[in-house]
Design a protein around this nucleic acid. Structure first.
Length: 279
DNA sequence: AGGATAGCCTGCGGGC
DNA sequence: TGCCCGCAGGCTATCC
């Protein structure tokens, strides 16, 4: 389940394969995972050109959980991987099941977007500016740059549970269920706590915890629980560093209390009832 | 209008 | 062994 660290690892492993490479063809096996937008903000017909056919790739960018492959023409393909999405580069292996879009590159390699659950998708725009204006503008700041000051403004007066706010991509982009629980544990905050009851110093601690948890997970290559692999098909190692996620009923690594598991914000949530105080 | 909820979709593991 | 059910959850649409 790609959250920010996994998508960043895909970006980093993808870039060396793509930069300066020309797209010589595109094969779409499921057109309904793609959406094309023009400069007027209208949804338009899917074409190879809009998926960068014939163009040279000049950049691979990321905001939150979304990737953008940018051509030298300025045209952009934005990929969101949902839960089970994968972007892999390989040397022309036969298509696997659920491989929805394949880009043929002049390097001889192919890039494929695979997504069994189809919670992800592909969006095309004539420029990065339009992607930012039409799609990324809905997102909060990238969670790797999250600050306590921003959290204080974004959560001001909100009565919802802090975990729900962390999962809200308009608050900060990139946090999912795994790293929300890990960050709340590090910050010592009960995930059920209403936002408006969290003091500013605790919000600063939370923002720091979010950045630390995400940064460390990137350094470990992301978390592989089931599906995640980077652009080279390699699994990550960050799951070994999870202190609470997936450990409900086990002992807290800090105080040995039994970790509690319950549904918070419609998500399976694990926390330490001793270390994470309810404010 | 903020916040809670349902639904999308497939693979897998547990239970019988 | 095989089938059925529940669960995983990022995001949007819808309801309250």
């Amino acid at each position: 389940m790609p959250e920010l660290p996994e998508v960043e690892c895909v970006r980093r492993t993808l870039a060396p394969h793509l930069l300066g490479v020309r797209v010589v063809g595109v094969r779409v096996r499921r057109a309904d995972v793609c959406e094309c937008w023009n400069a007027l903000g209208r949804c338009v017909r899917l074409t190879g050109r809009r998926l960068l056919a014939g163009q040279r790739i000049a950049g691979v960018e990321r905001h939150g959980k979304q990737l953008a492959i940018v051509a030298d023409s300025g045209a952009v393909v934005c990929v969101h991987m949902g839960m089970t999405g994968q972007l892999c580069v390989h040397g022309g292996a036969p298509a696997r099941a659920h491989e929805h879009v394949t880009w043929l590159l002049d390097s001889g390699a192919t890039l494929s977007f695979r997504d069994p659950r189809r919670f992800g998708g592909v969006w095309t725009f004539p420029s990065m500016a339009l992607l930012r204006a039409r799609r990324w503008s809905e997102l909060g700041p990238d969670a790797l740059t999250l600050t306590g000051d921003h959290l204080a403004v974004a959560l001001q007066g909100s009565t919802r549970a802090v975990k729900a706010a962390l999962l809200d991509q308009s608050v900060a982009a990139g946090i999912g269920n795994i790293y929300a629980d890990e960050a709340l544990f590090r910050a010592g905050i009960d995930p059920r706590t209403r936002c408006s009851r969290i003091p500013v110093d605790a919000l600063h601690a939370l923002a720091n915890a979010v950045r630390d948890v995400l940064g460390e997970a990137v350094a470990r290559g992301g978390s592989t629980l089931r599906d995640y692999v980077d652009a080279n098909g390699e699994q990550g190692g960050a799951q070994a560093a999870h202190l609470v996620y997936g450990r409900g009923g086990e002992a807290c690594v800090r105080c040995s209390a039994r970790l509690r598991q319950a549904t918070v914000a419609q998500r399976t949530t694990v926390w330490c009832p001793a270390c994470q105080g309810r404010l």
